Simulated assay, not measured.
Amino acid sequence: MFSLTPYSYPTSKSVKEILISSVAAGVLVYLFLIIFQPFGTENFHHPYKYLILFPYTLIFGAAFFASNLCVSRFKDWNIASELLKIFLILILGSVLSYFYNSLFISHVVLSFENYGYMFLYSLAVGIPISAIYILSRYIYLKNSHENTVRNTTSQPIEPPLTLTKTILTISVNTTELKIPENDFICIQSMENYCTLYYLDNNTVKKIWLRISLSNILKQVQTQTINRCHRSYIVNLEKVKNIKGNAQSYKLILPEMDFDIPVSRSFISIIIPRLKHLKR
């Protein structure tokens, strides 16, 4: 279980998907309560029993919605982060449920001991529901991201027929480099250093520069040269093919002996431009 935590977990970019998944999570909580009636719920008799239980749907659904909306802004997310998010949702849901139960149903005095019971109840209900939620949402989002690039990966990406003559100027301290855009291959970043790969008389050359990736991106970014990962900038004209899946897309460049990863946060930028170049 713990060995899986470093692996990436897809996040939502659509508010509609977040809303639907959050409503589904809330409904699962409600169905669990009315079907299994745990923790003495079966002994709670009231003509509007099911209506009284319904706010738990709103509580947990809102907790899921707020957390997923915040998470959608993160570029990198993994299973460990997702599990931590679920745990925080259960804490938030248990606090709100405790106040609702104490003030509107049980009418008991607020105390940490009573909240402790509510927290344990929330864990008992939330853990199986969260397991279903995490697995189903992972499958849906993974398939959604894979469908985004399926049309692109079906055929090799051919270089454009018309070559640009743009000259890139890269200034680092007292060093100034001028490289034709067509000869630019990629940049790999490690901390405050960048390794620039380019063609010189059809031979791959590389040079180390003391500059951050964000600063060098301002100097080289064009319609075809883009950032695709927190550590990489790539010339999309040099991309021959794509491999991998929603967890690990990689760009294949014939000139390089390594593949260039694509972060999920850059898929919406990189894939459409690759499709445009393939036309």
Rank of each mutant, 00 (worst) to 15 (best):
S171F: 05
P47N: 01
L96A: 02
L4S: 11
D76Q: 11
S72G: 11
P261Y: 11
L168M: 00
H276Y: 14
M118G: 01
N192M: 08
F54W: 07
L69E: 15
S106M: 09
Y197C: 04
H276K: 15
F64W: 06
F65L: 08
P55L: 03
S22E: 00
N147R: 13
S14C: 03
K85N: 01
D200W: 06
I187M: 05
F64A: 05
S81R: 08
E158A: 14
I271K: 10
H276A: 15
H107R: 09
A62M: 03
L110V: 09
A246N: 07
E17N: 10
Y249L: 10
L253D: 13
L123P: 11
L19G: 05
K275E: 15
K178G: 09
F44P: 02
D257Y: 08
S231G: 07
L28F: 02
S136R: 02
E113L: 09
S171M: 03
I242V: 04
L213P: 04
R73I: 05
R73F: 13
S8I: 14
F104S: 07
S94C: 02
K250C: 09
I127T: 11
S8V: 13
V234D: 05
L90N: 11
I242H: 01
E113P: 09
I170Q: 04
G126A: 06
F32L: 07
L83A: 01
S144Y: 10
F74Q: 14
A131G: 10
P272Y: 10
Q221A: 15
K178I: 05
P160R: 06
P38L: 02
S22Y: 02
N114A: 10
V262L: 12
E113K: 07
N143L: 13
L251V: 05
V108S: 14
L253E: 12
Q247L: 11
T148M: 15
N114R: 07
N173M: 09
I269W: 10
Q247M: 08
Q37R: 06
R137H: 14
F54H: 03
R279H: 15
T175F: 02
E17H: 11
Y117C: 11
G116Y: 12
Q221P: 14
L196V: 02
D183A: 03
P6L: 10
L83R: 00
M118Y: 08
L51A: 02
A66Q: 12
L58K: 05
I167E: 14
G40I: 02
L236C: 00
Y197E: 03
L123H: 07
F104T: 06
D200L: 07
S154V: 15
V220T: 11
H229L: 13
V109W: 14
L84M: 08
N147I: 07
H107C: 06
I211P: 09
S248L: 07
S21H: 04
C70Q: 12
L110F: 04
K243D: 00
T222M: 13
Y193M: 02
S265A: 12
L19F: 09
A62F: 00
A80V: 02
I216Q: 04
R279Y: 13
H45T: 13
Y30R: 01
K238M: 08
E146F: 04
N241Y: 04
I127D: 05
L58M: 03
S94D: 00
F184H: 10
D257A: 10
L168A: 00
Y115W: 07
N68V: 09
L28W: 03
R264L: 08
Q223D: 15
V71K: 13
I260R: 15
V71W: 09
S102F: 06
E237G: 00
I86Q: 03
Q247T: 08
Y56S: 04
K178S: 11
